[in-house]
């Protein structure tokens, strides 16, 4: 692996960073979303507004935070607001253009489970729960999903719907009175997926270099759909890889 110019995790993060724009206002989660958002900020989107749910608005961290409320966030933020204000004014108030979500389980309509594996009342695994996700999923204008593919994680039906994607598909969101777009894209370590315009089923639109359809089928718990005009994801540039690795290296050293 040493000679590999990049790994699949890195491409997942970089592919997500490419779709962020300078004028986006982004509700950022810890992990891959935080890395993707900060690569965008350090490369093509220097003025992107990054918001973490601890109330920190317009952060410019030098190291990736370990937690959602590291001091680095507040120290580099334009302003820090109380948590009730974050959720009432800034999220519910409709100020966010993009929210990032991922989880333990996802289904073909982008519904996500981060609550329990097994029945809620007697769980096999008790996961952390929703945090901000239930409202992020419906109150950001668009949702970016980011998650590594596995049969365990990509399931026909999630054990618990922590946050809404497209429900049962089609116009389910509209019938619930929700006006935001929901998931517009899913980045994985194998591919980029987008919802079908009508059915809303997540569909593979771009496979990462070296990935075959069978590789994707082998890691998905349903029979995945592929777009007719299937693309190959652009390889990371040297600059993208350098930015990501540098950011990860300083972050690891800091924690």
């Amino acid at each position: 692996m040493k000679d590999e110019p990049y790994n699949s995790d890195e491409l997942m993060t970089i592919a997500a960073s490419r779709e962020l724009r300078n004028d986006d206002v982004c509700f950022v989660g810890i992990g891959a979303p935080s890395a993707a958002c900060n690569i965008a900020r350090l490369s093509h989107a220097p003025d992107i507004t990054l918001i973490y749910e601890s109330g920190t608005i317009g952060v410019q961290p030098k190291v990736l935070p370990l937690s959602i409320g590291d001091g680095e966030l507040c120290e580099t933020a334009l302003t820090t607001v109380p948590v009730r204000e974050m959720f009432r004014y800034w999220l519910q108030g409709g100020k966010m253009t993009i929210g990032f979500l991922g989880g333990a389980q996802i289904d073909k309509f982008g519904n996500i489970n981060t609550t329990v594996i097994g029945p809620y009342g007697k769980p096999k695994v008790r996961l952390p729960g929703g945090g901000g996700a239930p409202e992020i999923a419906t109150q950001c204008a668009k949702i970016f999903l980011i998650m590594k593919q596995s049969k365990r994680g990509f399931v026909e039906q999630v054990d618990f719907r922590t946050s809404l994607g497209f429900g049962s598909g089609g116009n389910a969101r509209e019938t619930m009175g929700i006006h935001s777009s929901g998931p517009v894209v899913l980045f994985t370590d194998y591919a980029i997926w987008r919802p079908h315009p009508k059915t809303k089923e997540l569909t593979v639109v771009s496979m990462h270099p070296g990935i075959a359809r069978e590789d994707i089928e082998a890691t998905i718990g349903w029979s995945p759909r592929f777009a007719d005009d299937l693309a190959i994801t652009e390889m990371p540039t040297d600059k993208e890889i350098q930015t990501l690795r540098q950011l990860k290296a300083v972050s690891q050293a800091a924690h």
Partner: peptide, 27 residues
């Protein structure tokens, strides 16, 4: 959810019996 508890704390501070907000849609 975070939104619910943040609202519930605020309602407590405001002396209200409950908090009303837009949330949990489809969850």
């Amino acid at each position: 959810s975070h939104a619910a508890l943040a609202n519930a704390f605020e309602a407590g501070a405001a002396g209200l019996p409950s908090a009303v907000f837009r949330g949990y849609q489809g969850a």
